[in-house]
Simulated assay, not measured.
Amino acid sequence: MTMTAHTPAILVLADGRAFRGRAFGAEGVTLGEAVFTTGMTGYQETMTDPSYHRQIVVAAAPHIGNTGWNDEDDESRGRNIWVAGLAIRDLSARVSNWRANRSLEDEMKAQEIVGIKGVDTRTIVRHLRNYGSISAGIFSGEAANEPIEALVEKVRAQPSMDGADLAGDVSTDEPYVVPAEGEKRYTVVAYDMGIKTATPRNFSQRGIETVVVPAGTPVNKIKEYAPDGVFVSNGPGDPATADEMVSVVRDVLAEDIPFFGICFGNQILGRALGMKTFKMTFGHRGINVPVINHLTGKIDITAQNHGFALEGEAGVTFDTDFGPAQVTHTCLNDNTVEGVALTSGMAYSVQYHPESAAGPHDAHPLFDQFVELMAAKSPNLKR
């Protein structure tokens, strides 16, 4: 069947809800967890973020595709689209951006990403908000004509995101180096749980050489790089399955190496300090999430993408094997834990994305904090 502008498609949820629309991108079938993002811009960064692996993204913004697709804003090193599928209201009929090299649909076809357009995304977003993220599937072309009951069964048969160990799917196979811009000041080993390209770029701009290593690399191996600091990135999946990385981070803390983590890295640090995690109802996905720093009282508007979180309360201090720690940040929308740290200052993490190009830059100073921590730990290094 040759796909046309009127090729049928259907988004099917595991609870039996179904939304008919039209196909765009590649024709076929895709399965994943249906989630929504509230970002009005940044669909390219979202789609190439490895943290969205195995997720069908529903865009809350009604008009998608107007800025096309360029060769500069991809968040994955291999320029891969990681979302399982995309559901939108309206697809822009034309591309209007001076940096665009092609259209969103052209890129989705090239990477065989299945999409659906013409659905009432307001209704879908409200449904996910009220009942939670859920297993789903997009079926287009001939597959869209199968009985709904059969499609629901296919959706329900896929593995759940709860308990999914996905970092290995997106992590690098071999270490690689992102050099510092100008004179090198520090070396940071970054664990790739699904790292976004913007993170090493932010390090590079601050004179940091980043050695990106596969998830689970033992500490005795990374010590060969003589790191001044260790970083753990964002990534997909359930942090409750990340026992290997939790053990690695505990070894890092025992070695008294400065530590910084974001998103998945926040959950891993929390677990290393004895905290527990849970699956959120619908998560935080967008570029407009308010977070308060309980140490300073400052509020940042942040970019986020997570469906799991740490259990804890605002400002609480608790004992760990590595000294006292505290919950440093929480979300003003729902009090979700957004940051933890050792009170010694040697390790800290946040749930949001300070590197994110699709969001505001309120959280950029977190990179400078890491530089200051490494400078304090190694005063003989270049400042």
Rank of each mutant, 00 (worst) to 15 (best):
M3T: 15
M3V: 13
H6M: 11
H6D: 14
H6A: 14
A9F: 04
L13F: 00
A14E: 13
A14G: 11
A14P: 00
D15T: 01
F19E: 12
G21I: 04
E27K: 06
V29C: 05
V29I: 14
A34F: 02
T37N: 14
T38W: 04
T38H: 08
M40K: 12
T48V: 06
H53G: 01
R54S: 14
R54T: 12
V58L: 04
P62K: 06
G65P: 09
N66Q: 13
T67F: 09
N70L: 09
E72T: 14
E75W: 12
S76V: 02
G78M: 09
N80P: 03
N80K: 13
V83P: 08
L86M: 14
R89W: 07
D90W: 10
L91P: 06
S92M: 07
R94C: 08
V95C: 02
W98P: 07
A100H: 08
S103C: 06
I113P: 06
V114S: 03
V114A: 06
I116R: 09
V119M: 03
R129L: 12
R129K: 14
S135V: 12
A136F: 01
G137T: 14
S140D: 08
E142L: 11
I148Y: 03
E149P: 04
L151N: 03
L151Y: 00
L151S: 01
E153P: 01
V155A: 01
V155E: 02
A157R: 00
A157G: 01
Q158S: 04
S160T: 13
S160V: 05
S160F: 07
G168Y: 05
Y176L: 10
V178T: 02
V178Y: 02
G182R: 03
E183A: 14
R185N: 05
V188Q: 01
Y191K: 06
Y191G: 00
D192C: 05
G194I: 00
A198G: 04
T199G: 11
I208M: 13
I208Y: 08
V211I: 15
G216N: 04
N220P: 05
K221D: 12
Y225W: 15
P227R: 09
V230K: 04
V230H: 02
V232D: 12
N234S: 07
A240Q: 13
V246M: 07
S247Y: 02
V249M: 05
R250A: 12
I257Y: 09
F259Q: 02
G261W: 04
N266F: 10
Q267G: 07
I268H: 00
G270P: 05
A272E: 08
A272R: 01
L273V: 01
M275V: 05
K276R: 15
T277A: 07
F278C: 09
G286N: 01
N288H: 05
N288T: 13
H294I: 10
L295R: 15
T296F: 02
G297L: 00
G297A: 04
K298I: 12
A303E: 12
N305E: 12
G307W: 12
G307L: 14
A309T: 11
G312E: 06
V316L: 03
T317S: 14
T317L: 03
G323M: 07
N335G: 11
E338N: 08
M346F: 08
E355G: 13
A357T: 09
P360S: 06
P360C: 08
H361R: 15
P365H: 09
P365I: 02
L366H: 13
L366V: 09
Q369I: 06
V371A: 10
E372Q: 15
L381H: 13
L381A: 14
R383Q: 15
